[in-house]
Design a protein around this nucleic acid. Structure first.
Lengths: 265, 265
DNA sequence: AGTCAAGAGATGTATGTACAAGTTACCGTC
DNA sequence: GACGGTAACTTGTACATACATCTCTTGACT
């Protein structure tokens, strides 16, 4: 909010916000599609109609339509007006990274009990994954994650020291670690999740209350900054009955990912 | 190469192909990034320089840059020239759907032995997933998939009858089922993969040569047409040592998926 | 030497124009 | 009635221009 000095700009109307025109148009178009005002499967108004309605030139309208098209909400071609298509929206990064956010989106109450948080020296493997020399200090965080009070996942997370030291000023039993890191402006930008299956080890079995050797869904996660510097290396082990991962892809190339509870209720 | 007829169009140069200008520019820019001509991490030439070099206006240049930006090959901002970034390209749908294609991309020889292919009546669960009435005819295909001759995955696939009957004219031990279905113009358009972990059952253990109860990585796949009609319901069980799935996502929303061998070799 | 302001240059945004290329509907002809 | 051509309309592409906004450098002043 920097332009409150009166008479400074000419400003005039700027209906709602101070965003660029094509973004406001895109938001409005998306609203109309999702609200059903532009019914699915039917052609949307032509560009010239939209220009007339909003009193703009074709540029912003086309930019907005291109945005929706790349998001998959519009399909269509040359000569014929584009057709609206409702799609499941997804803002995967946050909800995919944060157990807390994910739990809330599926309507369950997240919980956690910290098993340990400690500064120690990096082992050979984690050092290699984090791009550190063996023996450099790192911060390890082990937490049992709960859904509605029931154990669902065991998280073993290793942070580089610069990021991990933030955790000593933070109670990992209350609130989301990721939210805290983002609030402290840690540059969490990119994550690679590697999914496989493992047999439960003794500690896994004990904390997750299953038998040793039972199958667990393991997700190893390497989170890096926008410059590609590794920040976190994690090993999450889910009870298969509590969570599954889904990938949806289409032949056109769009891909959305998600994490869901298994269907049994 | 269509422009050899003299004087037919005015055509002039049109360097290589007959594609729209911004697509040719985008391809050229991408080539320069991937060839290292525009080194990674360094700013690329400014828009006006590019306009001058190719003798075009800013429009097509900006369109091409926007294309690369959305593909993740360019990052950058306002006022400062964008920075090149090499990324792993991905065309996930084909390689993600087809075991055969995937195996080849990781440099291994795919193999398979068909356990059974049969027409039978849909069970309650598969009928529900495929949107059929219980008892309608479906085609079930069970195959053991191999990598370099070693068992890697057990595939249990159920096709709706209209698609499945194609398989009776086809030898599933040689060649890719998916390639065959696409060749026959089956409208495979969308797939939802649900990933979890299960304990190996008796048949799994026998065919994959592990002990019953050992953890397996299960991927249930529902493939649908572009109209959303279910075509295939599959249950693939991977040896965790032979394959893992990866998901990469960034805070900007781009997501790529892949299937890899585990690191041990 | 350090600091701040001005300016040059870059990208982002928006308008207007023009033409190419595809789709649809209409209408006259056979 | 069937066929084919044309006209109107739509989107795709391209160019020219203008201004806003941000970045970085330069240079003068303290």
């Amino acid at each position: 909010m920097r332009s409150s000095a009166p008479g400074c700009h000419s400003q005039l109307v700027k209906t709602s916000e101070d965003l660029p025109l094509h973004q406001r148009l895109g938001a409005e178009f998306l609203r109309r599609i999702e609200s059903g005002e532009w019914p699915e499967g039917l052609p949307v108004p032509s560009e010239s109609q939209l220009c007339a309605e909003f009193g703009t030139s074709r540029g912003p309208v086309r930019q907005a339509l291109a945005m929706l098209r790349s998001a998959g909400s519009l399909v269509g071609g040359r000569g014929k007006p584009p057709v609206a298509r409702r799609t499941t929206p997804s803002q995967p990064f946050g909800t995919f990274l944060s157990f807390t956010q994910w739990a809330r989106t599926i309507g369950r109450e997240p919980g956690q009990s910290t098993v340990e948080v400690a500064r120690r020296r990096a082992s050979a493997e984690t050092a290699a994954r984090l791009g550190l020399a063996e023996g450099e200090p790192v911060v390890e965080l082990v937490r049992l994650r709960l859904l509605d009070g029931v154990p669902a996942m065991l998280e073993r997370s290793t942070f580089v020291h610069e990021v991990g030291r933030i955790l000593f000023d933070f109670d990992p039993d209350h609130g989301s670690v990721y939210q805290e890191l983002l609030r402290r402006e840690v540059d969490l930008h990119h994550a690679r999740h590697t999914i496989d299956a493992v047999a439960a080890g003794p500690q896994d079995a004990d904390l997750l209350r299953v038998a040793a050797g039972d199958p667990l869904l393991r997700v190893r996660r390497l989170t890096t900054s926008s410059q590609g510097v590794p920040l976190e290396d994690a090993d999450d082990r889910y009870l298969p009955a509590m969570a599954t991962f889904t990938i949806e892809n289409t032949i056109e190339g769009r891909t959305v990912i998600g994490r869901y509870r298994t269907e049994e209720d």
